[in-house]
Nucleic acid binder design. Structure first.
Lengths: 147, 147
DNA sequence: TTAATTGCAAATCGTTTGCTGAAAG
DNA sequence: CTTTCAGCAAACGATTTGCAATTAA
């Protein structure tokens, strides 16, 4: 049985003699409750609802811990802000992004995943992670534009 | 026959009543002479060799024109700086990046390209561009580490 | 002479960091 | 007591922008 996300984080903290402070606990809960992709700012706003005295730096620092512990993944779609999402106990997926409305659809494809491994191997690389972003126009925005 | 990169840029400027100033010409030449990936800063340093009075803002502004005209492509590998590379008359490719030494290998794969199109279509999206980054450890860095 | 363009410096903006006091073991 | 943390504000670093002076058509 897989460890729960909270266990993973606790173990991570314990290993490096760090504490689960109320602030960290609160930010992690806000993080776990979050769906989809979000920015540090968005998590900050959410965390502040639970405790208005939370500082933005603490959110940044905790997000770094979450990424480092494997609970979160971060990526950049070139908009000047880092995006975060769950990364533990979630099947890997890539993103299809509408450049008109910003909608992001998660996609998975076995064929691509396998080819990526093969390509890396052909070059003698050991693959640790990858990021695939497909940019286009979503059905809704296409409709609006065609008229 | 395909238009040359310089022609593309000239046409682009003409269409919007912009001029090919000495600074722009110089930056474009530096850009065209560049191989592989580079940052705005790197292009700035190179351009300054041809004309030390060039301003960094002009390089940023011209790079934007280059991207907009289709001559350049830009992407972000999450290091806080935008990377640029040629995007006209060059077959599309993706990147395999060594997270130890930063080496970047260009890769192309028909199978993946096709699947990407299919995936987008399945969701009703019209694909305009995509970005695939594979992160791992290159053969050289693997050797060093194994010992 | 009129609009486009430059270089400079100041402004932005997301993110990081130094510092001081508070809290945890 | 000793170390870890939080919050704040200042620092940062890449990129953008306002502006006055310069250049191109």
């Amino acid at each position: 049985m897989l460890k729960s996300a909270r266990e993973v984080f606790m173990d991570y903290l314990r290993e490096r003699d760090m504490n689960l402070t109320p602030q960290r606990a609160l930010i992690v809960e806000a993080f776990l409750a979050e769906e989809g992709h979000f920015t540090s700012e968005q998590l900050y706003i959410k965390a502040r609802k639970a405790d208005p005295s939370i500082g933005q730096a603490t959110v940044y620092r905790t997000l770094k811990l979450l990424v480092d512990s494997g609970l979160a993944e971060t990526f950049d779609i070139g908009e000047g802000v880092a995006l975060y999402e769950h990364g533990y106990g979630h099947a890997h997926h890539d993103h299809l992004i509408c450049t008109k409305c910003g909608r992001k659809v998660e996609i998975v494809d076995e064929v691509i995943e396998r080819r990526q491994e093969d390509l890396a191997e052909e070059q003698g690389f050991t693959l640790t992670r990858h990021r695939m972003l497909l940019f286009g126009t979503c059905p809704q925005c296409l409709e609006g534009k065609e008229s």
